[in-house]
Computed example of a mutant assay.
Amino acid sequence: MSMTQTGSLTLRSDHPVETRGGNTSTFTRVDFPTPFPDGAEVVVLAQVQTFSGPHTPGLRIADVTPQGFLIRMNEVYATNAKSDGTHGNEKVGWIASTV
């Protein structure tokens, strides 16, 4: 039987675009309202719900556990779409489910 939880938060980025894998020092911790059972395999999907800045606000998710996850706004950084990394407040919705 799968279990699903949802939530939302406001994120902003005051840091440059993060380009190194594994550096989660600027991420925000999100705790699930109710932890999933120990040993559960949890998947998290998140999406920006607002449009408050001229650059595209990408999201990074890391360290998903039955207790929560880490999330960071990381503006899109590509060959022709380089951004400065900083970004104002955006509302982010998320859904987490066991698989």
Rank of each mutant, 00 (worst) to 15 (best):
M1S: 14
G93S: 12
R72L: 11
T6A: 08
I95S: 10
A62K: 12
S52F: 12
P57W: 08
F27T: 14
L59K: 01
T56K: 11
T10C: 08
P16E: 10
V17W: 11
G22N: 05
S83P: 06
A78F: 10
G85N: 03
L59H: 02
R60G: 11
A81D: 12
V43F: 11
T28F: 03
P37H: 07
M73S: 04
T26W: 08
P66Q: 09
G7D: 11
N80I: 13
L45F: 09
T28Y: 05
A46H: 02
Q47E: 08
T79E: 15
P37V: 05
A46F: 05
V44Q: 07
G68N: 08
F51K: 11
T24W: 05
T26P: 10
G93L: 05
N74G: 10
D31M: 09
G53P: 06
P37R: 09
D63P: 00
I61D: 01
A46I: 06
S25R: 13
D84H: 12
V92K: 00
H55P: 02
L59V: 01
Q5E: 05
E18D: 13
T4K: 14
V48W: 01
E90F: 02
I95N: 03
Q49H: 13
S2W: 06
T6P: 02
T10P: 04
P37M: 03
G93N: 07
G58A: 13
G39T: 07
N89Q: 14
S13I: 09
A46D: 00
V99R: 15
P54A: 12
V92F: 01
A40F: 02
G21N: 11
Q47L: 04
R12C: 07
G39A: 07
V48E: 04
A62E: 13
D31E: 13
S8R: 12
G21Y: 14
V30G: 00
G58F: 02
G58T: 01
N80M: 10
G39C: 05
E18Q: 14
I71V: 13
K91D: 15
R12P: 07
G85Y: 02
L70G: 08
T4D: 06
P66V: 02
G93M: 03
R60C: 10
F69P: 05
D38L: 15
I71D: 01
A40Y: 03
